[in-house]
Amino acid sequence: MDDHWLPQIDRKRCSPDRCGGGACVRHCPADIIALIEGKAVLTNPERCLYCADCETFCPLNAITLPYMIQFAQPITGNEGDHHEGTTR
């Protein structure tokens, strides 16, 4: 998995003491964020849903998700090639 396309955690900003002990940990639907040595860490990045809940609920803006913006590929009519988007 390309680490670039995962939630990016700013360890300097991350401060669980100031967010009730890990807002991202509580809200992650895949349960893949844990507090290790007082900082949020992705424990199973391959299971990340990229739902952005961690980013949304982090009050310290310590988590960000990079997005690639591009024009959609022409739909060929083969539904198998067309992935449904994530609802957020």
């Binding site: 990229y50 949304t56 998700l65």
Partner: peptide
């Protein structure tokens, strides 16, 4: 960022864009 999240949802609801993991596709 919260305002951007809301605006992205509205653009997605309108059908102009679509999320697919780390992609934002202009549909």
């Amino acid at each position: 960022p919260q305002t951007i999240s809301t605006a992205l949802r509205e653009l997605e609801s309108s059908g102009a864009i679509r999320f697919d993991r780390h992609h934002i596709y202009i549909e």
